[in-house]
Amino acid sequence: MSKNLIRKKNLDTIKRLMFLNGKMVASELVKKSGLSIVTINSLMKELLDENVISEGSLIQQPMGRPAIEYFFQYDLQHMLLLSLQDFNGTLCLVAKTTNLSGTEKQAWFIELPEITLDWLIGAITRCLEESDVAITQISLSIPGKVFDDTVTSSWKQQLDGWSIKAALQQKTAIPINIQNDAHLTTIGFCIRGDYQRDGTIVGIFYPQESTPGVTIFSNKKLIEGHLGLAGEGKYLPFLMDKQAPKNDEELMRNIAEMIAVYNAVIAPNMFVISSNELARDEMNLAVSTNKHLPEHPNKPEILIDTKFQESMTHGLRWLAHEGTPYYL
């Protein structure tokens, strides 16, 4: 490995340690990174010059001389987190800006009176123009699947064929990542609750009076399938001929059937179930009374997500930070 690559790797290690801990002294960085104090001091000077960190005051150590305390600059970068969501049959854009710590700076709620790509790009552009901070990354959640920047299956088929990234790049050079809403809320729930992500997780996102989306997340990797279409729960044979559930009982019965199907096919460690105002006790009853699940040898943990918006925010942050030293 070349000296430049080694130095970049070491810088990324220190950035991540500072990101996770917020403040540290050089001796702590030596202990946690395994790098020498000479290397640490050189790297800290570079990070100071780049405004990644700042110097605090001298603090007395348990042993030895006082040391400079370094602080991570969470306002170094700001993300625009966007989520297209159905509110009572109207598609709306829920938007917020956050820094690297997830601290919210600004928020918008924009209805899309016309379901067109131009309206969506206009709404995103409005957020960028009104933002009080410089945006370095955009993350977008959509009720649909994306493959090669083309929406392949979406909410009421209204977004099918859209090339959102290409259209937005006509307005801004800020990088954008786009992902399915079920995927992001499932991953966000696991991050928010600090659940183990090394096994296999199946997420079922089933908005009331709508159709379900399914996430398969195995060993920290999304299984997206051909054309990104894996997990389109609305195409399960027992759901295709049905209307959207009209009441909670029907919704939970459908979810229990979906758990039985994916438990047999995938045998996950855990299911994450997300739906608007899902009643935990009623969902547990639907699962326990399902006629198929008691016979399954795989006994997964079944978790209910009752805080969709919080999970979505964590999922969008995961998408924005992926591939950087600040990954969640």
Rank of each mutant, 00 (worst) to 15 (best):
I142G: 11
I142E: 01
K291I: 09
D118F: 15
T97V: 04
L82G: 06
V146K: 09
N247T: 08
E250V: 02
N180Q: 01
P212N: 11
S218V: 10
L100D: 03
I259S: 08
L82I: 09
N247I: 07
Q60D: 01
G233T: 10
N177S: 15
V151A: 11
E232A: 12
I216Y: 06
N10W: 10
K220F: 07
D148V: 00
L120Y: 15
V272R: 08
T97S: 08
T97Y: 02
S275Y: 09
H226G: 00
Q85A: 07
L229V: 02
P212F: 08
G193K: 15
H78E: 01
M283D: 06
V52S: 00
D198P: 11
P237V: 06
W155S: 00
M63V: 10
I201S: 03
S275V: 01
E277K: 11
D160I: 12
S141K: 10
Q158A: 13
L239R: 01
I302R: 10
A95G: 00
E232T: 00
A264V: 04
L82P: 02
P66D: 02
S2H: 13
K171W: 12
K9A: 14
K23F: 13
N88C: 13
T289R: 13
V94H: 15
P237Y: 11
I255R: 10
L93F: 14
R253W: 01
I121Y: 15
P268V: 01
I110Q: 11
K32F: 09
A95V: 06
Y327A: 14
D86M: 05
Q73P: 05
I223N: 12
Q73S: 14
F238M: 09
V272G: 10
T39F: 06
Q170L: 09
E301I: 08
L251I: 06
L120E: 03
D118P: 09
G228Q: 05
M312R: 11
Q179E: 00
K96M: 12
H78D: 03
K15R: 14
P245E: 03
K299D: 06
Q137T: 10
A167M: 09
V25E: 01
F271Y: 12
K307H: 15
D75G: 04
W155R: 13
R197M: 15
M240Y: 08
D194Q: 12
I302D: 02
L35T: 00
G64E: 14
D86A: 02
R253P: 04
D181F: 02
N180R: 01
L80Y: 03
